[in-house]
Design a binder for these strands. Structure first.
Length: 222
DNA sequence: GTGATGATCTTCT
DNA sequence: GAAGATCATCACG
């Protein structure tokens, strides 16, 4: 198992700090026979309803519901929800209990378990592992869930800071000093939070999802 | 390469 | 009843 498990304290603060600091960390899905590992290269912060101003794009902004309850619990837990009928998205809860911030994982750079990822995505194996092939695996919030086998029934509420958890976030020592900050993807144009620069990506990384020339700026990682 | 469209169903109102 | 933190596919240039 690569790197060290991230402690709960890592997630105990504001999502707009956690998101850029998650860049470069490893997302690990361990099943009985195989481990799948991807490096986080893109993440978005969603702010809790206690935030001023509130974040109208966040699932938690109207308070707890059966769906988003995990977000109001302890930090470092997986919030998995279904979207558009056929997909899932994976978030990690942030901030202290009762404050429902979170970070949406939007893209990974495949590291290992690539063969299994391709099977899970329903793609034919590519022994050459071309860049186009690798990019299809885990570039996009729902693609990475498919590749790692993350689903609501099996993963919602998992503690990603627990050594016994099949889903973990680990740190292999790669340090990032700067991140690219842009507006978040897929937010309704009516939403006033559209412009907030809460999407963070590894500058120049080829596995980042979304439009290529989205306006953004380099910011220091806190 | 970019942009438009439909699929599909859960969740909350 | 409507909207949605998406993706694959197709048309076009």
């Amino acid at each position: 198992m690569p790197g060290r498990l991230l402690p709960r304290k890592f997630f105990e603060t504001r999502p707009e700090w956690v998101a850029p600091r998650l860049l470069g960390k490893l997302l690990v899905q361990q099943t009985d026979s195989t481990a799948m590992v991807g490096r986080i290269v893109e993440a978005e912060a969603y702010l809790g309803p206690h935030n001023d101003p509130p974040d109208p794009a966040a699932h938690s902004h109207r308070g707890p519901t059966p769906r988003n309850l995990v977000l109001f619990g302890l930090p470092g837990h997986a919030y998995v929800y279904s979207i558009y009928g056929k997909y899932f998205c994976l978030n990690i809860s942030c901030e202290i209990e009762g404050q429902a911030g979170c970070v949406l994982l939007r893209a990974l750079e495949p590291v290992s378990g690539i063969e299994q990822m391709a099977v899970n995505r329903g793609l034919p194996p590519d022994l050459e592992r071309s860049e186009a092939f690798l990019r299809q695996l885990t570039t996009g919030p729902s693609r990475l869930c498919l590749a790692l086998g993350v689903a609501r029934a099996s993963h919602n509420g998992l503690d990603v800071t627990s050594a016994g958890s099949p889903l973990q976030v680990r740190d292999d020592g790669s340090a990032l000093t700067e991140a690219m900050a842009t507006p978040r993807i897929g937010i309704n144009p009516m939403n006033e939070a559209l412009e907030w620069p809460l999407r963070f990506a590894v500058p120049g990384n080829r596995f980042v999802s979304g439009p290529k020339n989205l306006k953004g700026k380099r910011v220091p990682v806190p």
